[in-house]
Design a protein around this nucleic acid. Structure first.
Length: 188
DNA sequence: CTATTGATGGTC
DNA sequence: ACCATCAATAGG
């Protein structure tokens, strides 16, 4: 069952935790590509120095300030894309980065999904999907069996050392011992 | 196993 | 100039 607007219209930390175990689905090029979410990170608002919205309202971050349930896709390091879900009410610029998937459908064997750049490549998510409505038919999330709390671990976000004390907050969630989680050395 | 570096382009 | 990444490489 597809997740509805009400799911996204909550604090990013709640959505990040609840997204663990859900399935991300993208219909592209005539194929259905899907993966089970096993790692996420919350970016909680303008005051969060690791959140892109802390730079203010720009063309790139505008979507974060918009309504929840939209995709925020950005291009990074000249060659990768990262996929986020916009959360919270309009004008609250929070989002959840999806960092790793367990392949479910339409992903060739051997293609990795253990990292935000890699999962976008595998699901064919690019800037063309930026701002896409996740309650639509092309790109959306589906419910799945709940993942027990004892199986979900929490720790600091990856790659945000520039954000001072915000870099150390435990805003990253992952499934314990799951082989598809990124940054294995930080994921036990 | 850890540490370092280069690829490559949108954004401000 | 900076960057919410990744793969390749060198070294212990």
């Amino acid at each position: 069952m597809r997740l509805s607007l009400a799911f996204y219209e909550r604090p990013a930390l709640i959505v990040a935790r609840q997204l663990i175990g859900k399935t991300l689905v993208h219909h592209a090029g005539g194929g259905r590509r899907a993966g089970r979410i096993v790692e996420t990170e919350a970016y909680v608002g303008e005051h969060d120095l690791a959140c892109h919205a802390s730079k203010g309202r720009t063309r790139r971050t505008e979507v974060l300030f918009g309504p929840p349930g939209r995709a925020y896709v950005y291009f990074i390091y000249g060659m990768y894309h990262c996929f986020n879900v916009v959360t919270e009410a309009e004008d609250v610029a929070a989002a959840v980065l999806v960092r790793a998937l367990e392949p479910v459908a339409g992903i060739p064997p051997g293609q990795s999904t253990d990292g935000p750049g890699k999962l976008c490549r595998a699901l064919r998510i690019t800037l063309a999907q930026n701002r896409e409505d996740l309650c639509g038919k092309r790109l959306f999330l589906e419910d799945g069996p709940p993942v027990k709390g004892s199986l979900v671990r929490r720790g600091p976000r990856i790659g945000v050392d520039y954000a001072g004390q915000w870099a150390r907050k435990p805003y990253r969630f992952w499934v314990r011992d799951n082989p598809f989680v990124s940054a294995r050395r930080f994921s036990r």
